[in-house]
Design a protein around this nucleic acid. Structure first.
Ligand SMILES: [Mn+2]
Ligand SMILES: [Mn+2]
Ligand SMILES: [Zn+2]
Ligand SMILES: [Zn+2]
Lengths: 152, 152
DNA sequence: CCTTTTGTTGCGAGCTGTTCTCATTACGCT
DNA sequence: AGCGTAATGAGAACAGCTCGCAACAAAAGG
């Protein structure tokens, strides 16, 4: 029989964020966030894809819980939600070094590249200011054809 | 009994665009495009809204036909399709003086303002060039709170 | 510990926006 | 007017997502 460590281990930022809000850490939540962390940033997964990736690696989490958890992780700013037009929404690990990147999407094959541009960020700020709006977030989606799809 | 005019009237750009592609002008198609033209640019309508506006003014066009026609009008570049995240997609008359405008959206009440910014356009071009993509279109969506929704 | 409380899950039903199927209609051409 | 074929209307189907609720499980209290 293994006894738990006698010291109190540091809770992860995820766990303490949950706790401080009366919410609980669960295996399902851990699995979803871990998937994104293992896969790294710059990868954009749909809820369906999260579900099948977990299923394939033997972890059973219901689709409804995945949707709930994704929403939660977005609200907690661990994930970023993308609306790339075609198909369902996608989610990516929110990297704190590149929080404001934008996306270049091949509308044929779905290949997606990321880029940053301060002018875009400023354009959003400026527009919000001009109309007296309080800026939340601005996202530039560039729809295009990748080299492979472009020459036939 | 009224006879049709004996001269051949100039077909509209819409009609000639259709004809040149083996497609036909129909009352339904005319009604949908006319609605957008009468209502003017800068107005963003969902398919459902197009349907109810036509229904209210006594024009009966089925919802399926409206979806088909909206797709067609986008492909023919008479309309622009917006993906403002929340709810269904919206459509607007594509004004040829302001083809590349962007949108500032209040996520609470839906109020939407338009703005133009050359830096944004250039950012899209630049990103496409850097990755060897062929640019199709780029759209900046700024999510924010309008003054009314922002203070309470 | 056992009990209570309360947040969370899984499942299926439900919902919303959009597309599809197919029988019927009607545009455009002669 | 008649023909070929595109387009429509009506409803079924679909995709993506949310909800309701019973079963479950983590905290909290005794
Ligand atoms: Mn990204
Ligand atoms: Mn607009
Ligand atoms: Zn491609
Ligand atoms: Zn508002």
């Amino acid at each position: 029989m293994i006894s738990p460590p006698s010291y109190r281990s540091h809770p992860s930022p995820f766990e303490s964020g949950l706790r401080s809000d009366g919410k609980r850490m669960t295996p399902q939540r851990k699995k979803v966030l871990s998937l994104f962390e293992e896969i790294g940033s710059g990868i954009h997964l749909s809820a369906e894809e999260v579900h099948s990736k977990l299923t394939i690696s033997g972890e059973k989490v219901s689709l409804a819980t995945i949707y709930r958890t994704l929403r939660l992780l977005v609200k907690m700013t661990f994930l970023n939600e993308l609306d790339l037009s075609e198909g369902g929404n996608r989610f990516e690990l929110l990297s704190h070094d590149h929080p404001d990147h934008h996306h270049l999407i091949c509308i044929r094959c779905g290949r997606t590249e990321e880029f940053e541009n301060n002018n875009v960020i400023n354009a959003g700020k400026e527009a919000a200011t001009n109309f007296g709006f309080k800026l939340l977030e601005s996202s530039l989606n560039v729809r295009a054809l990748c080299p492979k799809c472009s020459n036939k």
